[in-house]
Design a protein around this nucleic acid. Structure first.
Lengths: 183, 183
DNA sequence: CGGCGCATGTAACTTGTTACATGATTCC
DNA sequence: GGAATCATGTAACAAGTTACATGCGCCG
């Protein structure tokens, strides 16, 4: 019991607390700015938006002028804010990590080292790409630093991404080298 | 299409390739030695063992002498080894990360800094604990280094855990300090 | 007017967790 | 004999992905 789960709710509430957004917008934000620590699919976002609206935690609001009329934007209601704050006070659940690459590497004495090296290279590239995205966001943030509201908190989250992503890339390089020496 | 998934299969095959094991044994190994990059529940392991046996990729074998008679151990068959090797050659899927703590931290301007600091402390403790487990395994490995078969590969996986876990703990300390300064 | 990106949504499915039931064995 | 741990299993549920359907609006 007492398993909170359904974090999509809180992601939505958290983002909506900074301003009105559509489901599409939310997906984009997660993919761009949160990609190194979070992910969502439309199949989660749209139904959750509907549920939150039905529960009265968020409400539909007018589409932006200058944007298409079929775009549905939502804004947070006071009930939603209460729910969000409640979640913030609860302890975070232990995250589940599953890194397939490491599982493969663990058993990879059954394959040629170059096969594994290719996979680690792919891993490196993918995380370098994330690091790029990440730096773009960092820069974007530096340019628009007026929104000091949760500026400090965002910087802490960014420092996590920075540190971990760099670790991933460094580790990849080491391992690729070792695997290539094995050939 | 062509989404491989169902990694539990390969975890089981990989472990069984090093020797016969029961479902219970597998769970233990994952919790102890793989905990920083993998997890499984009994609800995944037992049905998958049954499926693998039905498909003829693994076979039941006699319980260890000196152990309880109701313990079911399995061993890998040549068909299973082929399947395992096939998976190793396929590119690894991009891992999905979801760190609830970071999501909270991102939105935590809505809470008192000490509430958040407590959560980060919990995060730190939990990863320190993992680091401990990890070091135990490392030592255990050093003692029994005769099984040189996939020794190099294991060391690479360990170096990942070492690096990332230390990053997590360092980051936690930084953030806790910053949050405490905010009070 | 065709294609692309924007935008919303859902149904079918897979994956994974939890809670529970059951019973053996060991150790005090 | 009671508690802890070993051990296997499953049913109900929750979570998450994928593939698809649909249509708007802009640009060339």
């Amino acid at each position: 019991m007492r398993t909170s789960r359904n974090k999509t709710r809180y992601l939505i509430l958290g983002l909506l607390n900074e301003g009105p957004l559509s489901g599409y917008d939310i997906k984009k934000i997660v993919d761009w700015r949160f990609s190194y620590f979070w992910s969502e699919s439309y199949g989660q976002i749209y139904p959750e938006l509907a549920r939150l609206e039905a529960e009265g935690l968020i409400g539909a609001c007018k589409a932006d002028e200058g944007s298409r009329k079929d775009k549905k934007r939502y804004q947070i209601k006071s009930e939603g804010l209460i729910e969000l704050k409640k979640w913030l006070a609860e302890p975070a659940e232990k995250e589940v990590v599953r890194i397939e690459l490491l599982l493969k590497l663990y058993f990879s004495n059954l394959t040629a080292p170059e096969v594994m090296a290719d996979q680690v290279k792919e891993f490196e590239i993918s995380h370098k790409r994330q690091l790029e995205l990440f730096k773009q966001f960092e820069q974007q943030l530096a340019e628009t630093k007026q929104l000091g509201d949760n500026h400090d908190e965002i910087l802490m989250v960014l420092s996590f991404g920075q540190k971990v992503l760099v670790s991933y890339v460094e580790w990849s390089r080491d391992v690729i080298k070792k695997l290539e020496e094995k050939r």
